[in-house]
């Protein structure tokens, strides 16, 4: 067998790949579920915190800033490990899936709150004044005048950050989540062959590359022009 054949035989072994394809596919489903949950809850919570912060209630804002700083400072893996291995000592024992979901949702919440907030504060005072002078309330001004402009500004940083954090679903493998990497790793140790790992890698590319390319497109489309 030539070196090339041996390489293909080892890393792209058709038999092994066929055998473990269902595992990888089920891993993809878990990864997608996890990713969607993180995006929806993380961004939702981040926006909610930014809106709360715009009410300018001092002690509440300090609390928001602290929580945001906390989840920006801690490595996601540390949060996951703490939740999965630490929390049971205090009572609740979240599954690996829940630990990964909540940890990454908190991280996305923190980053997106910062981005939403920066977007809101970057809207000039004159926009508020013009709107309020025509009789719109604080809430109406926020939702009709300020947020639509802020969103446009925040979309590029937000997409990039969301992708980076959603990729972190792979960390779930450390706490026994059966997502792509977890499936691929266990398939590899069962088959003594790295082909499942190559499949797993391909699965990530299939899932995330389109999103990255779309993000690049969004970035040029939403570049602010006045």
């Amino acid at each position: 067998m030539s070196g090339w054949d041996k390489f293909v035989e080892t890393f792209f072994n058709a038999k092994v790949m066929w055998k473990y394809l269902p595992d990888i596919l089920s891993g993809m489903v878990v990864t997608i579920e996890l990713a969607l949950l993180i995006v929806v809850t993380g961004l939702g919570a981040g926006l909610a915190l930014a809106l709360l912060r715009s009410l300018a209630i001092r002690p509440l804002n300090w609390l928001i800033i602290f929580v945001v700083d906390l989840f920006r400072s801690l490595p996601p893996l540390v949060i996951i490990v703490l939740m999965y291995f630490g929390l049971p000592y205090a009572g609740p024992a979240p599954s690996g899936f829940v630990s990964t979901w909540l940890s990454l949702a908190f991280v996305l919440m923190a980053f997106s709150e910062e981005i939403f907030w920066a977007g809101i504060t970057s809207i000039p005072k004159g926009q508020w004044e013009a709107s309020r002078s025509t009789g719109l309330s604080f809430g109406q001004t926020l939702f009709n005048v300020v947020l639509p402009q802020a969103f446009r500004l925040t979309i590029p940083p937000l997409t990039n950050r969301t992708i980076a954090i959603t990729k972190g679903t792979a960390l779930g493998t450390v706490v026994a989540v059966t997502e792509i990497l977890g499936q691929a790793s266990s398939a590899m140790s069962n088959s003594y062959n790295p082909s499942p790992l190559m499949m797993g890698a391909a699965a990530y590319i299939v899932l995330f590359l389109p999103v990255v390319v779309a993000a690049r497109w969004i970035e040029t489309k939403f570049a602010w022009k006045r």
Binding site: K167, A170, L181, S185, L197, I205, L209, V212
Partner: peptide, 26 residues
């Protein structure tokens, strides 16, 4: 650009595991 997008799409942990657990097979 393709190179950059590839690694932006690839979770770093997967890359790490690939190097750490995959390369020994080669």
């Amino acid at each position: 650009m393709a190179w950059v997008d590839f690694f932006r799409a690839f979770p770093p942990l997967v890359l790490l595991v690939l190097l750490f657990a995959g390369l020994p097979f080669a």
